[in-house]
Each structure stands twice: as structure tokens, then as C-alpha cells.
């Protein structure tokens, strides 16, 4: 008797028939399982008994029996003058579910080389205007300006630990790190001389100030030039470096928004990497478990499942019979640390 009722839970629920059968047929199946003879597997309940147990009408029971017979779950033996005999049959094993692997994500790290489409506006807006000394710099305002690679390893590169992730500032030869620092990828001396500063003064300024301060002034100059507001480029740059000009608010705002985007990209990349790692670990564990389970026989597997369930700690509510209200029991269960099963 128990055998069949036990099977209802474990095999009928997993079978495809459970989804297609109506609720009345399930109820009749349960009643037949309850009445099944332990030795032979046959059951002989009358229609009235089934109807009473299941809370259905006689006609509904008859329809449900036909449904179960059609689904191949019950064998019915009808003989004149004898009670009907029913035998529960093994439900069809569930179809193997296809593995639900998510589509592969790009495996490599996200490249920050390409500027995002939603990036801040380029500092280049009025490229045509400007002095002759700034003409060479106009190449940096091109869309491909960030593709310019340093001609050599310059000594103006920051001495501190260079951050691994940086994003180019469109229209300039500089890069912005996630920490908000400016990274220079070209020879600053050459850049300053291209702006019209004498090489001797450029050398002197670079010796006095660090690369980031020079880059800030140059960014200001690029912006002012793009706005057509720079009358004396070399003079502005020289005074700006000597006085230690900070970034113009307009430039600082654009850099800040750029920096936030970069940080968001880095965080997303880290999250994706963590997720990939967790998924691969879970896949490995699942494969190992599946391999072990494949080697186990059904009886051994059943026994192990029963042992595992029995070894779980009994919830607090089971030790407290005074809690008769199911709502209170649910609350106590949660407070006792009973995490819901997923």
C-alpha cells in the first residue's frame, strides 16, 4: 500500500502524465494507491468508496478512471459479478530535460579601448578655428585620436602604480583611470612644443610640474580652443602650468561622467567574472554529483535520499506541539532560521 503511495510522490509527480491528467484523476489515483494490496498491487475499491474518499461524484470517478486507463496509469479488470480490480502501472519516466545552458557570453574581458556610444561629447566642436600652432593637435580631436599610440615610453608617464583599466578621453591623447587620474600616453615635451612653446621652456616646465598637472592645462587648452575662446595658446599653457591651473568646470564635469561610466563598466565586468566563476563551479559540482548518482542503483539512491532527509535538523516547530496555528508556526519556522527551499 505504502509502496504505491510512495510512488505517487516520486514518480507520478515527475512524469509527464501528471501535467496532462486532471485533478480528479489524480485524486482517484491517490485513492487507488491507498487501497492497493501490498503483495499483489491490485486494489478493489468500489466506485462509491472512491467517490467518498476523493470527494467526487460517481460519474466523475468513472470519467477519471477512464482517463487514467487511457493514460496507461491504471489497468482495470472488469468481470461480471465481481468487483472491479485496479492496478497502478508504472508512470512513464520523465523525458530527459535538455540542459538549460545560458548562451555563451563573451569570454574575454571587456575592452575599454572603444569609447562607449554614450560617452561624453567630444571636446572637439570647432576644429577649424585655431592658431597655426594648434593645427598639429587637431589630429587628437579626430575620432581616431585615441588610437594614437605613444611613440616611445615617455618619462612623463605617472610613476605610481598605473591602474589596469583606463578609458581614452575622446579628442585628446590622454586616458582617464577609474580613480580619476589622468594618464599621458604621448611625449609631453613634443606636445608642448607642438603647441608653440619653445623646447627649452617646455623642458623646464615639465621638470617643474608632474605630468598630470600638465595634462590638466592641456585639456583646458583643448576645450577652450574647441570653443574658439583661446587667443594665446602657448601663453595660456605656460602660465597655466606655472600657476598650477585646475581643470575647468566644464572639462571636469565631462571627465567625471566619463570616470563614472568606466567604474560602472569595471563593476559590471567584475560581477560577470564572479558569476561565470560561480556557474563553472556549480557545473563542475553538478557533473561530479551526476557522475556519482549514475553509478548508484535506484534502491541505493532512494536509501541515501532518505538518510539525508532524516539527518536534517528538525525545525523548532516540530519540537513545540503547542503551536497549533499554522501562521504562527510559519513565523516561528522562519525566525528559527528555516530558510525556504529554492
Amino acid at each position: 500500500m505504502d509502496r504505491y503511495f510512495f510512488r505517487v510522490e516520486h514518480e507520478l509527480l515527475r512524469s509527464e502524465a501528471f501535467k496532462t491528467l486532471g485533478g480528479s484523476a489524480i485524486k482517484v489515483y491517490l485513492v487507488l494507491g491507498l487501497h492497493s494490496d501490498f503483495g499483489t498491487g491490485w486494489s478493489f475499491p468500489s466506485i462509491r468508496t472512491i467517490a467518498t474518499r476523493a470527494g467526487l461524484s460517481r460519474q466523475t470517478v468513472l470519467s477519471a478512471l477512464d482517463e487514467l486507463a487511457a493514460a496507461g496509469l491504471v489497468a482495470i479488470q472488469r468481470e461480471q459479478g465481481k468487483p472491479n480490480a485496479y492496478r497502478l502501472l508504472q508512470p512513464t519516466p520523465p523525458r530527459p530535460t535538455p540542459s538549460r545552458r545560458k548562451p555563451d557570453r563573451p569570454s574575454g574581458p571587456i575592452s575599454f579601448e572603444e569609447p562607449p556610444a554614450t560617452g561624453p561629447d567630444s571636446l572637439d566642436q570647432n576644429r577649424s578655428s585655431g592658431q597655426k600652432s594648434l593645427e598639429l593637435l587637431s589630429q587628437f580631436f579626430d575620432a581616431s585620436g585615441h588610437d594614437l599610440r605613444p611613440k616611445q615610453e615617455t618619462r612623463t608617464k605617472p610613476k605610481h602604480n598605473a591602474p589596469t583599466a583606463s578609458v581614452p578621453i575622446p579628442g585628446t591623447p590622454f586616458q582617464l583611470t577609474a580613480e580619476g587620474r589622468l594618464q599621458v600616453t604621448v611625449d609631453l615635451k613634443e606636445l608642448l612644443t607642438d603647441q608653440g612653446l619653445p623646447p627649452r621652456i617646455a623642458q623646464k616646465l615639465l621638470a617643474q610640474k608632474d605630468a598630470e598637472a600638465v595634462a590638466k592645462v592641456l585639456l583646458n587648452a583643448f576645450y577652450l580652443k574647441s570653443q574658439g575662446k583661446l587667443q594665446n595658446g602657448p601663453g595660456y599653457i605656460r602660465v597655466g602650468i606655472e600657476q598650477g591651473y585646475d581643470l575647468l568646470p566644464q572639462v571636469a564635469d565631462r571627465l567625471e561622467s566619463r570616470r563614472r561610466e568606466l567604474q560602472a563598466q569595471i563593476r559590471a565586468q567584475a560581477r560577470r567574472a564572479e558569476r561565470r566563476q560561480a556557474e563553472s563551479k556549480a557545473d563542475e559540482e553538478a557533473a561530479a554529483i551526476a557522475m556519482v548518482l549514475e553509478r548508484l542503483g535506484p534502491a541505493e539512491l532512494e536509501n541515501l535520499v532518505s538518510q539525508a532527509l532524516a539527518s536534517l535538523p528538525a525545525p523548532l516547530v516540530r519540537r513545540n506541539p503547542t503551536l497549533s496555528n499554522p501562521f504562527v508556526r510559519a513565523r516561528v519556522y522562519e525566525l528559527a532560521g528555516g530558510e525556504p527551499l529554492e
Partner: peptide, 27 residues
């Protein structure tokens, strides 16, 4: 069983199965 509608018994069995076949658990 007699007090539960047919559809409800299916839902109940699914929840019980998700609970590992044991009472006093949540899922």
C-alpha cells in the same frame, strides 16, 4: 483529500514535492 478540489491537489502535491516531501518546511 475530499475537501480539496482536483486542481488544488495538483498544486499541493507540487509544493509538497518542492519541500522534499516533509512538512514544516517552506519553499
Amino acid at each position: 483529500l475530499a475537501r480539496i478540489k482536483g486542481e488544488a491537489i495538483k498544486v499541493y502535491l507540487v509544493i509538497v514535492q518542492a519541500c522534499g516531501g516533509r512538512p514544516d518546511r517552506s519553499v
